[in-house]
Design a binder for these strands. Structure first.
Lengths: 351, 351
DNA sequence: GTGAAAGCGCTAACAA
DNA sequence: TTGTTAGCGCTTTCAC
């Protein structure tokens, strides 16, 4: 055995109270940075904490506090499979967490609409809420609204698309540049030496995740596959109907499209187009997000690869991070890093 | 808002004691299936539990119990990057869990040696241990040793390679058949229409994970890529030196090897061979496990794809599962499913 | 500024 | 067979 040989019991607040020669209440005050303690006393306590290597037992703390964490997810009101999966996961986790003093809820805001998003954020009751997870565009008004949340002590995480210029505490989602690079690599390798054009479906130029994917995609295409010509992005606004209408024209105008990178939501439109039989030979397709529809497409050979992020992990991670930030506890970076999942029909998870 | 609208506080044992008209102690006895309660009383309590929808607060329970979970990992004494990563993760998690009443340790057993494994399991002090995670071969003696653990109330999970014929409580690891299928798909797609032979490096025929990978690999090769000829497995016993010695002969004997599936540990040997410059043109290579060495090979183009399982997830999942089983709590299947990660040089996680 | 004491939800002696 | 009571580690009144 290499670890856990001896079992020196962890010090408790009783120990530090004893060592610092103060009462439990005082230890608690400095632990929680509450006012009304003389500076000298604070020092004494901190010294004892450091000397004993004290780490607070959050489970016991929460039990005593009777605290209930209240977290809100703000999501686009758009309807697509990825979002409903996210919502399903929130509901499921919410049920599981009812018995761990944590309440989750979500609200909807018009997609790609920074003004509506800012308004929704501003309308939140900062007194009643401990943390907010935001999936939406990055604009000055959104940044301001986030700053306002932070001022009022609310923890903020960005979800799926980062808002790095804001004061958000953490970003929960994949590295979208790397995701775009991965898509390019797959498409390029699968196509082999043949020459032709690549069509890119995106959602909106306002969505940071979509932009970043395109960036990464172009970079690898230019570097490794110069014989493939990447066309301008088709903006589908994550809307299946719009996408279905746009595709035929784009394909016809350009000719010789041998690959498609569907980098946003709305796969349904693309699939409807394929199923109409209007496309021979079928281009190699790399799409995003594993959903019932994309699974089927993968299984049936309509999609060749799907790049995905696990919505369950996304939601669990957002909640863990918001809790940790709230408790001023450290987060485990490795556990919270959302993986860029690559799915072929062979490694799709069951169900 | 869709969820968490109202906040009906969860019932506690006080509530069920009141409803069932018994004392706290009796409720506790029923809850923990302790003896010495009249059947009729048990019924009453169960009814109250059901009526109120009571769910035990494990955090409070553990606090009161002062219980310390003691979990042991049994790992091959083999030295390779995957195993050391696993050990690093165990150590790291162990440190993090010191303050959550959980102690982790690991012991080493000669690799691919069922007798040594069974002996190691038998030598465990079942009184002092709450759970064991086992990474090793599946044989009758191992099964018996596991049965013995179970009889003594120890939770058992199999790790990385399943031992389905035993009474293990859970398997923590990837679906190795699907992993093999994925490798075949990648190799086949990357190679395109060219004809040639595929070399397979395996560890040991005793290792169930290795066997399953080969199974899945062959299935997809036969179905989708009949123009590729899959050779017999080269048994490298996860030993870099042995592998380096075996490869040249295998390549020479067969000729026209255009793809390699390195399905076990010991990538180092393969890489040393490549770096000796003895191989032109370099075959397309799909390997297993993301490690410092395989990262480098991926980045440098020596490996074309790496199939992996996250050792951090593996360890965390094993611990969560052992804890849940110990507490007779349900596990979240989705969270505990270990993903088959596919890495290209583009989507390697940082560091 | 500081401390004493009650209590969060549960368990475990010890009595009865 | 059942109940009483004193904690687990921490927070939070309410006094001093």
């Amino acid at each position: 055995m290499k670890t856990g040989q001896d079992t020196p019991l962890n010090p408790t607040i009783n120990d530090i109270a004893r060592v610092a020669k103060v009462s439990l209440a005082t230890v608690d005050r400095v632990l929680n940075a509450r006012p009304g303690v003389r500076d000298k006393t604070v020092q004494k306590v901190h010294k004892a904490i450091a000397d004993l290597g004290y780490v607070r037992d959050t489970a016991a703390a929460n039990l005593a506090r009777g605290r209930i964490y209240n977290f809100v997810f703000i999501l686009p009101s758009n309807s697509n499979e990825f979002l409903s999966s996210l919502e399903t996961q929130i509901d499921a986790l919410s049920r599981g967490l009812r018995h761990e003093r944590t309440r989750l809820s979500f609200i909807h805001v018009a997609a790609f609409d920074p003004v509506a998003l800012a308004k929704a954020i501003d309308s939140l009751d900062t007194q009643a809420i401990d943390g907010v997870a935001i999936l939406g565009p990055e604009t000055p008004s959104v940044r301001d609204s986030i700053a306002h949340l932070k001022e009022n002590g609310v923890t903020v995480v960005s979800l799926v698309a980062d808002i790095p210029s804001s004061e958000r505490d953490h970003y929960v989602g994949i590295d979208n540049i790397a995701a775009g690079r991965t898509a390019a690599q797959l498409l390029g390798r699968f196509l082999g030496p043949q020459q032709g054009k690549i069509l890119i479906l995106t959602g909106s130029m306002l969505a940071r995740d979509h932009l970043e994917r395109r960036l990464g995609f172009d970079e690898v295409m230019a570097r490794d596959f110069p014989h493939l010509q990447v066309l301008a992005s088709l903006e589908g606004r994550d809307d299946p109907d719009l996408i279905e209408r746009l595709i035929p024209g784009a394909l016809f105008d350009n000719g010789n499209v041998i690959g498609i990178y569907s980098s946003a939501a709305g796969n349904e439109g693309l699939l409807r187009f394929f199923r109409s039989g209007a496309c021979h030979p079928k281009p190699v397709v790399v799409a995003h997000e594993l959903t019932p529809l994309s699974r089927e497409a993968l299984a049936g050979g309509l999609f060749d690869a799907v790049i995905s992020q696990d919505t369950g992990h996304l939601v669990r991670s957002a909640v863990r991070v918001m809790r940790a930030k709230r408790d001023k506890m450290p987060i485990n970076a490795a556990q919270e890093r959302i993986r860029i999942d690559v799915y072929l029909k062979e490694n799709m998870p069951p169900e």
